[in-house]
Each structure stands twice: as structure tokens, then as C-alpha cells.
Computed example of a mutant assay.
Amino acid sequence: MKIKEIIVVEGRDDTVAIKRAVEADTIETSGSAINEAVIAQIRLAQQTRGVIIFTDPDFPGEKIRKTISSEIPGCKHAFLKKEDAKPKKGRGIGVEHASSEAIREALKSVKEEMIESIESEISKDDLLKAGLIGGQQAKSRRESLGIHLKIGYTNGKQLQKRLQMFQISRKAFLNAMDVILQEEHNE
């Protein structure tokens, strides 16, 4: 599988994992304190080939994703499930621990960030009714929703913005919630 866009990752071990899974070029941020030279490199990559942001499914990874998105609009995003990013032994979480299959699957499900802001079909009230904000199961439901819609995990405050950013339709949202509620019922 060859990837046209340049994949933005956090570090060298992530690059090794990506190159093991697909044929692609990468840019490494070297952590969450992204300097202006790296931003300029990513900006040029976005203009010439396009960019896929593929960071770890944790707080620092989300911080990097937000920093790049705010500086360089229109990026694509690939998300790994947390369980796919955990090592077989030991601790930690990251792209470097993911199997080649999980990396390829995440890259097949890339979501494109919309540059123009369009009114979301999903209201805050919809999120409350679905138990995605303000309830005991809210966090686990948001994790499940992120997996089903392939948009990654986000906190309650950012969920509506993420759904809007990736233009998730009301129908796709409701279908995912039906599946999540059915899974909870079967547990």
C-alpha cells in the first residue's frame, strides 16, 4: 500500500512502524513542542502532497494534532484505537506499538478535516440525550463513538466540534449510537 500524502508522526519509532506497514514518507514532530521549522515543513508538505496527521491516541498526541490543525487547515487525520496502540508487554501507548494491519486499517479510514465551517447536524442536546456528555457512561461511550466513526477519542467539550470538523452526518451518528447501545445491552 503506497500513501501519496506525507504522514506526520511523533517520533522515529513511529516512522519505523509506518514504513513497516506501508510505503510512505513521514515528518516527525519530535514531541508535542512543535517548533516553527517543523510547522513550515508540514505546511509545505500540505501544499505539495497533502498531509495525514497520525499521532498517538493520548493527550500529547491530541495536543500535536490540534496544534498542527490550527496552523495548517485541511489536513487529513488517521486514528488508532487505544487497544491497537498498546505494547504486547510493558507500558505506554503509541503508533510504534501498533501492528502493521492496525496501521493500514487506520490509514484506509482517514478522515478529511473540513476547512469551511458548516453547521453541525448534531446538537449539544443530541449529545446529552445519547449519554455522551454529563453521565456515568459518557467517557466510555465517547471512546466507542470515536472507534465506530473512526474519528478518535475526544472529551465532552470537543466532541461536537470534532463531529462537525469531519462532517459526520446525523444518520451516521445515530447508526453508531444504535450499535453502541446494543453492545452495552449485550454486555
Score class of each variant (00 low, 15 high):
40 A>G: 11
76 K>P: 01
31 G>T: 12
57 P>Q: 08
69 S>Y: 01
34 I>A: 06
72 I>D: 13
20 R>E: 15
76 K>A: 15
42 I>F: 02
43 R>D: 13
42 I>L: 07
81 K>C: 10
56 D>Y: 02
25 D>M: 13
52 I>F: 11
21 A>E: 09
70 S>R: 13
40 A>P: 04
55 T>A: 11
37 A>T: 11
22 V>Y: 05
76 K>M: 09
68 I>P: 00
68 I>V: 07
69 S>K: 01
40 A>Q: 14
19 K>G: 02
60 P>L: 03
26 T>W: 00
41 Q>H: 06
74 G>Q: 11
33 A>T: 09
75 C>G: 05
27 I>A: 10
47 Q>H: 08
76 K>V: 04
44 L>S: 12
32 S>C: 14
82 K>D: 09
65 R>A: 07
80 L>K: 05
32 S>E: 12
52 I>L: 09
66 K>E: 14
77 H>K: 02
58 D>L: 10
41 Q>S: 13
58 D>C: 11
20 R>Y: 04
62 E>W: 08
63 K>S: 13
53 I>Q: 00
73 P>N: 07
62 E>Y: 08
32 S>K: 15
80 L>I: 11
21 A>C: 08
24 A>F: 05
67 T>Q: 09
22 V>T: 03
65 R>E: 04
22 V>W: 07
75 C>E: 01
52 I>Y: 06
49 R>E: 10
46 Q>D: 00
80 L>E: 02
82 K>M: 07
27 I>W: 04
43 R>I: 04
62 E>S: 12
75 C>I: 03
33 A>S: 15
32 S>N: 15
72 I>Q: 14
64 I>H: 06
75 C>S: 02
30 S>I: 04
56 D>Q: 02
61 G>P: 02
41 Q>N: 09
55 T>C: 10
53 I>L: 15
29 T>V: 14
26 T>D: 03
23 E>P: 00
55 T>N: 00
39 I>D: 05
35 N>D: 15
73 P>E: 14
71 E>I: 01
51 V>C: 04
79 F>H: 15
53 I>T: 00
26 T>E: 08
27 I>Y: 05
54 F>Q: 02
42 I>D: 00
56 D>T: 02
56 D>V: 00
84 D>G: 06
52 I>A: 05
38 V>L: 02
68 I>L: 02
27 I>T: 11
81 K>H: 14
45 A>C: 07
63 K>V: 09
35 N>A: 06
73 P>Y: 06
64 I>N: 03
38 V>G: 08
61 G>H: 12
79 F>W: 10
71 E>K: 14
50 G>D: 06
34 I>S: 01
79 F>Y: 12
56 D>E: 10
55 T>D: 05
48 T>W: 06
61 G>F: 08
43 R>H: 11
72 I>F: 11
60 P>T: 09
73 P>D: 08
44 L>D: 12
67 T>A: 02
19 K>P: 03
